[in-house]
């Protein structure tokens, strides 16, 4: 998808939506309104936005335990996501999923996932569904560098490559597997180099650079949509926060984090590009930031004012409400 000023503004806005949503969620955690684990995506915004800006509404996305960014970039509503973090009935999952399980099936966002590497084979399966139905929908699976060590990486990508399915595997290599620097526990520096095992293209890209991610992902999505099979993209990125909130971060220096925040912030990098191209004025920048601030403030208000789920919800959604052989949607009766 070619870059237009309109698309750039949309992508810039989406990066701010992710950044401010998460910083607010972080603040709400310190206030006690948001409980449970919160895995911050801040610093990696260009990956989710750069990839999802190439997708249609009906394309599939599967995420990770660090997926607020993937959901927002796919178009999920921040107020329902915030309500989910608050554990409210109006949340995307009615308060049953929380941060690690946000999903929005109306957008074919098939879910964040609390198990590392668990989305890879299901994304391949969603791509198989597109192929069987004869649609040109593409599936995208985001996963971290830790997932590349799992058997599901090998099995899932292996099947996607075998059947030449319309799927893009996006590894967000943020250099740390929970609290362990990646190269303490990995042999290959670049996850993209693993693509050779499956005879599919493997591309490594600067995940802090939105334009580069958008272009590389655009080629991969187009190849998948036209029947050219999967691509493995490694986006080299960085998480500005620790693994999850409360992480003391003894495994990395504050200088390293400062350097990345100061010189490799994807939002500031893209802002400079847009200013250089005259795609954005300072007034427009302020307007966008204020508009996003308002959106997030509204999201918090919505979450605060929403009711908690009632006890009868404990036992619903385990199985479909009607266990009847006539209840399947989309079935052709004979």
């Amino acid at each position: 998808m070619a870059l237009s000023p309109e698309l750039c503004k949309k992508m810039y806005t989406d990066m701010w939506r992710i950044r401010l949503f998460e910083e607010e969620a972080n603040r709400q955690t310190s206030l006690g309104s948001v409980v449970g684990a919160l895995h911050m995506y801040c610093g990696e915004e260009a990956v989710a936005v750069g990839v999802c800006s190439n997708l249609r509404d009906d394309d599939y996305v599967l995420g990770t335990h660090r997926s607020h960014g993937h959901c927002l970039a796919k178009g999920a509503e921040s107020h329902r996501m915030m309500a989910e973090l608050f554990g409210k009935a109006t949340g995307t999952c009615g308060g049953k999923g929380g941060s690690m399980h946000i999903a929005d099936f109306s957008l074919n966002m098939l879910g964040a996932n609390g198990i590392v590497g668990a989305g890879i084979a299901p994304a391949t399966g969603a791509a198989l569904a597109s192929k069987l139905r004869g649609t040109d929908q593409v599936s995208v699976c985001f996963f971290g560098d830790g997932a590349a060590a799992r058997g599901t990486f090998h099995e899932g990508i292996g099947l996607g490559a075998l059947w030449k399915l319309p799927v893009v595997y996006v590894c967000e290599n943020n250099q740390y597997q929970q609290w362990v620097p990646r190269m303490n526990v990995a042999v290959l520096d670049s996850v993209a180099d693993m693509a050779g095992s499956y005879a599919i293209p493997g591309v490594s890209v600067d995940g802090q650079n939105l334009v580069e991610v958008h272009e590389v992902a655009g080629e991969a999505v187009e190849r998948a949509r036209k029947g050219g099979g999967p691509t493995l993209i490694e986006a080299r990125t960085y998480r500005f926060y620790g693994h999850s909130l409360g992480d003391e971060e003894q495994y990395r220096s504050s200088e390293e984090v400062d350097e990345m925040r100061t010189n490799h912030d994807p939002i500031q990098t893209f802002l400079l590009t847009m200013m250089e191209q005259d795609w954005l004025t300072e007034e427009e920048d302020m307007e966008i930031q204020n508009q996003v601030k308002d959106e997030i403030a509204e999201a918090v208000k919505f979450a605060e004012e929403s009711p908690y789920p009632t006890p009868d919800n404990v036992t619903t959604d385990v199985l479909a409400p009607e266990q009847s052989d006539k209840s399947r949607p989309g079935e052709v009766a004979r």
């Binding site: 084979a121 399966g125 198989l128 569904a129 599901t152 099995e155």
Partner: peptide, 24 residues
């Protein structure tokens, strides 16, 4: 509509889950 796989039970099952969530 029949897929013979390599020996990859996690992959097979995961593909099943994803395809099912996508309407198959």
């Amino acid at each position: 509509r029949i897929f013979e796989t390599p020996i990859a039970e996690a992959g097979i099952m995961g593909v099943g889950v994803g395809a099912a969530m996508a309407g198959m």
